[in-house]
């Protein structure tokens, strides 16, 4: 009964969305053009992505590395919707709390606890910007493994130049040690940083499936292993 009721409610809600959308999109002027000025900016943005120009403003039919098509990848999940704020501000406290909770629930820990992997592989993964790019120059994951793109935003060992969008991580393990809480913190930050920083710009490398567990362990080794150049 509960299932039936909620399903009915869901269908009703969906119909409302369809109706509201249909209203805005169906209003065509004399030339048969859809009237963009009748839509809200958000409605128009969605229309331009998914409908305009005979099938959308993007190459939506392209197949994605993770499965599905570009159309699927352009759909926003709850977090992406909540964190898409004009002016780059933060949502209200309640939403932030809900984001934190959902982030915590998304994190899957390795069986037997968080272990450090191979720092040498981690060094290359932290440097690599390869993976999940599509469009005109598709990243073929069969040719090269997916990297972590970490150096785009962070400085690690100073033998290579990193970005400064995120904090400097030089000497990370040397300064903080390898206690269970700090390993958990870094694992969480890589897996889903919204647990600590709701609407951060850092990607959810674990929750999104961008990096697998082995790659996360190797990148963490690069940060924590005493032999790693990060901790020289």
């Amino acid at each position: 009964m509960f299932k039936k009721t909620s399903l009915a409610a869901g269908v009703a809600a969906f119909a409302t969305i369809l109706f509201a959308g249909g209203c805005a999109f169906a209003e065509a002027d004399k030339s048969g053009q859809v009237d963009y000025t009748a839509m809200t900016p958000h409605e128009l943005a969605e229309y331009l992505i998914f409908e305009a120009n005979d099938g959308g403003g993007f190459n939506l039919a392209q197949e994605m590395q993770e499965g599905g098509t570009a159309r699927d990848r352009m759909q926003q999940d709850e977090l992406q919707k909540a964190c898409s704020i004009i002016g780059d501000g933060k949502p209200d406290e309640e939403t932030m709390a809900a984001i934190r909770t959902a982030a915590q629930e998304s994190i899957v820990y390795p069986e037997g606890g968080i272990q450090l992997g191979n720092w040498e592989r981690g060094r290359e993964l932290a440097w690599s910007g390869f993976g999940y790019r599509v469009g005109h120059n598709y990243d073929d994951h069969n040719v090269r493994e997916v990297g972590g793109t970490c150096y785009n935003c962070h400085q690690f060992a100073t033998d290579r130049t990193g970005g400064n969008v995120g904090p400097v991580l030089t000497g990370y393990g040397k300064m903080r040690g390898t206690s269970e809480p700090i390993l958990k913190y870094v694992y969480d930050m890589i897996y889903n940083p919204h647990v600590y920083f709701p609407c951060t710009h850092m990607p959810r490398f674990g929750s999104s499936g961008f990096l697998d567990k082995e790659s996360i362990a190797d990148i963490m080794a690069y940060m924590f292993d005493p032999e790693s150049p990060v901790n020289e």
């Binding site: 128009l44 331009l48 992406q80 898409s84 999940y132």
Partner: peptide, 11 residues
């Protein structure tokens, strides 16, 4: 809106 719109593998 597009400028602020998050989507994809990196959010």
């Amino acid at each position: 809106v597009l400028f602020a719109r998050r989507a994809g593998m990196s959010d």
